[in-house]
């Protein structure tokens, strides 16, 4: 289980901290956003190196997040910033007279409803259409809809949810068999008896969001949270970054009074980062979780066949390896050596 890695360092030319990086759907483009109020879009050149193709001043303050929409809607980005706005950008490609292809990201719509810093912005799963959820430090989650996906300058606000705590992150659950779920993480320093992660059920038809649950065991301020891609599973995994990395399993218990009930179970809670964990990311099948924190390390987590999550590798920022898991299997029901063959396919 050796963890080998090849590192390519890239100078970004961002004048300040980069707060978010985001691959597009196909993984062939990358967007970064920074406190220097600029967004950059990167593409791979012929040498497989990432080169910056577009850079523009997008906001008037630090940009916290950048996300890509599903390519079905075009090359669309959304950003959110400390300047209280979120903006939807669309790539316009023009061919000049000399045949040069020129592309440019144009601001399509600026969401100015928030009175405070907008801390997160996320597009809904594509089957819901062009929906965008934002959350802000004043504790309000807003969901917008572009009724005409061909015209992204028109957005209507669908729902405003008052969370009553400063929100830091938001995540859509993409499970198709359920009503869409929105998880909201709060970074409010105060104590909250019901926990800092709240789950809302979004009913598309009724145009409303109903609070269905919260995760009481998460009491530390939440920096980030992320639903694993569902891809056909019956359970949903929600990763939460506080001072620790927590993985919560949500299992639908069927409907009661028109809302889905969930059976929640913490399947993993890890203090390995020892400091604030800032960002989480799942791979596309929802089998590996990557987390980063103030310790400057990337940790990769995955579960074994018993559903036990454990760290499978630690990468230092410059790519050198600090630790990789060498012990093959955790002690469990399988002790016979022959059995482990099944576990490690």
């Amino acid at each position: 289980m050796a963890l080998s890695s090849s590192v390519k360092g890239t100078l970004t030319n961002h004048k300040d901290l980069i707060h978010d990086v985001s691959y597009n759907y196909y993984g062939d483009r990358l967007a970064t956003c920074s406190s220097d109020q600029h967004v950059k879009v990167w593409e791979k050149d012929s040498n497989e190196d990432w080169v910056c193709k577009n850079t523009w001043k997008a906001h008037q303050a630090s940009i916290w997040r950048v996300v890509w929409a599903h390519p079905e809607f075009g090359n669309v980005l959304a950003t959110c910033s400390f300047d209280r706005t979120a903006i939807v950008w669309e790539e316009l490609v023009s061919v000049s007279a000399s045949g040069e292809i020129h592309n440019q990201f144009v601001s399509k719509h600026t969401f100015v409803d928030s009175r405070t810093s907008v801390s997160d912005v996320k597009f809904a799963p594509k089957n819901l259409g062009m929906l965008l959820a934002t959350c802000s430090n004043d504790g309000i989650v807003r969901i917008y809809e572009a009724p005409d996906v061909m015209n992204l300058t028109q957005w209507n606000i669908l729902i405003e949810i008052g969370v009553k705590m400063s929100c830091s992150s938001i995540s859509w659950c993409s499970a198709m068999r359920l009503q869409p779920i929105i998880a909201v993480g709060c970074d409010d320093p105060g104590s909250s008896p019901s926990g800092k992660v709240i789950l809302y059920e979004f009913s598309d038809g009724m145009r409303k969001c109903t609070k269905i649950d919260s995760i009481p065991s998460i009491t530390e301020p939440v920096q980030d949270l992320c639903f694993a891609p569902n891809i056909g599973r019956s359970v949903n995994l929600l990763a939460i970054a506080t001072k620790d990395v927590a993985i919560v399993q949500l299992k639908s218990q069927g409907k009661s009074q028109s809302t889905t009930r969930f059976d929640q179970k913490i399947v993993g809670q890890f203090t390995d980062h020892k400091q604030t964990v800032w960002r989480l990311c799942w791979n596309i099948t929802g089998t590996t979780l990557a987390s980063t924190g103030d310790d400057g390390c990337v940790r990769l987590w995955k579960s074994n066949y018993l559903g036990t999550w454990s760290c499978c590798g630690v990468l230092k920022g410059d790519g050198s390896l600090i630790k990789s898991q060498t012990s093959g299997e955790p002690v469990g029901l399988l002790s016979a050596p022959s059995a482990s063959k099944y576990a490690t396919s």
Binding site: M1, A2, L3, S4, S5, S6, V7, K8, G9, T10, L11, T12, H14, D16, L17, I18, V21, T32, S34, W50, N283, T285, T287, T288, V298, L300, K302, C312, G313, L315, G317, D318, G319, S324
Partner: peptide, 12 residues
Amino acid sequence: SSLYFFQPANQE
């Protein structure tokens, strides 16, 4: 900030 790219090998 700098940007790094990794290819962790032992992925599920």
